[in-house]
């Protein structure tokens, strides 16, 4: 069970500052269990954002958002709404956000921080996608996680060792930043990378925080 917690609303609103029409997605799996992005939280987020002047053009809560086959299937029914949206806000853990970013051709914002995998690793089995760092950066990286997938956890673009789409550390590893740049290019948002992403808060990560954390 991936343990996630909603980001402060100010942070979420800062992500949406240039967007008016939003599509909302939650998850009936872990996010429902941890009340960070289930039915109830999606409805609450809808009214919060409407109070802030946003238009919610649609919403869905998928059984297991990190299952890319299921998510692709479910989102098909909302093709029109998603096309009409400026962006998508996803209320669940990092694995779910990355699944959505992979199956839609639209900017995706993370609404939660992933605190812990709680011993499980989502339904996306072929590779590590979320390192439960507690301070989700997917907003700045086109829904592809450089903490999990870049050998140097870089937040401001690829290092000098990215060649032919591969990481210099191992030719079997795709360069996460190549993927990020390609996706932003496709979305016409390459300029997003001009922003300098500030040093990350590692105090909330499992590896830098307390050796054992308990959750309510």
């Amino acid at each position: 069970m991936l343990i996630s917690q909603q980001k402060p609303i100010e942070e979420i609103l800062s992500y949406l500052v240039n967007d008016k029409v939003i599509f909302l997605i939650g998850c009936k799996g872990c996010a429902e269990g941890w009340q960070s992005g289930g039915e109830k939280q999606v409805l609450e987020m809808k009214s919060t954002l409407e109070r802030e002047g946003k238009i919610i053009c649609g919403s869905i809560v998928v059984d297991m958002l990190c299952d890319s086959v299921l998510t692709r299937l479910k989102l098909r029914a909302f093709k029109k709404e998603i096309a009409a949206a400026d962006s998508i806000l996803v209320l669940t853990d990092g694995a779910g956000v990355q699944t959505v970013a992979e199956v839609v051709n639209k900017a995706v914002h993370p609404g939660c921080n992933t605190l812990s995998s709680g011993g499980a690793h989502a339904e996306w089995r072929e590779a590590e996608r979320c390192l439960e760092c507690g301070d989700c950066m997917l907003e700045f990286t086109a829904g592809i996680c450089p903490i999990a997938r870049c050998s140097k956890h870089l937040l401001n673009g690829p290092c000098g060792g990215s060649q032919g789409g591969k990481c210099e550390v191992d030719p079997g590893i795709p360069c996460a930043w190549q993927l990020i740049v390609e996706r932003l290019d496709k979305l016409g948002q390459l300029d997003k990378l001009a922003q300098i992403v500030k040093p990350k808060n590692w105090s909330v990560s499992l590896t830098s925080g307390l050796p054992v954390r308990r959750f309510p």
């Binding site: 401001n156 673009g157 690829p158 290092c159 000098g160 060792g161 990215s162 060649q163 032919g164 789409g165 360069c175 930043w177 190549q178 740049v181 390609e182 290019d185 390459l190 990378l193 001009a194 300098i196």
Partner: peptide, 18 residues
């Protein structure tokens, strides 16, 4: 430092700008 020869090429100048 900057590497004008690394990939993705379209990002290298943006990285210098940063």
């Amino acid at each position: 430092a900057e590497n004008p020869f690394a990939d993705p090429f379209q990002f290298r100048v943006l990285r210098l700008a940063k």
